[in-house]
Amino acid sequence: MELRVRALESILVEKGYVDPAALDVLIETYETKVGPHNGAQVVAKAWSDPAYRDWLRRDATAAIVSLGYAGRQGEHMVAVENTPDTHNMVVCTLCSCYPWPVLGLPPVWYKSAAYRSRAVIDPRGVLKDFGVTLPADKQIKLWDSTAEVRYLVIPERPPGTEGWSEERLAKLVTRDSMIGTGLARNPDEVSP
């Protein structure tokens, strides 16, 4: 593959279709700048600021843009909030739709046949693969992103975090907790 891809790139560059520097910028953007730390800011703000949380529930696209996270694969956002009764989980069974501006590129498993096939029929089995067990009576809402709407899960705020700053709260927010295949970290799992 390595050779085939390198040859294709040299063809595209020689034909003048791509600027090799643009390829480097694209990769650098998604390797270093855009990632789940963006989404963690959104969640931490929603946890700390009720007005922001309401805005996020009403118009997630605008609320997220207000923090500077916008654009490709996040044009139409919906935030879904976990509660004591309901757990939300997101999949794209057809391809790999994922909210890039807030979570970055999807993890390899998110794009895998194993996840795409099973999430909609056996989410508790999938959660077990992630070491997560939910109460048997908890409702599970699966969101299959079949259009250009992108879903962000707002995990439950862990107990024992009263009075924490947004910056400190953001450390509790994992990528998987914003997809719904994980939960937010407990306070004792992060340094103070």
Binding site: P107, S117, I121, V126, D129, F130
Partner: peptide
């Protein structure tokens, strides 16, 4: 793929893993 069976367990990975090979980055960017 929704509802298909037999692909085995999901393989979680740490958050920093975005690619499994260097060429994948070039394919994404191209």
């Amino acid at each position: 793929m929704g509802g298909m069976m037999g692909f085995g367990p999901v393989q979680p990975e740490p958050e920093h893993v975005r690619f499994h090979a260097a060429w994948e980055k070039r394919v994404l960017a191209m």
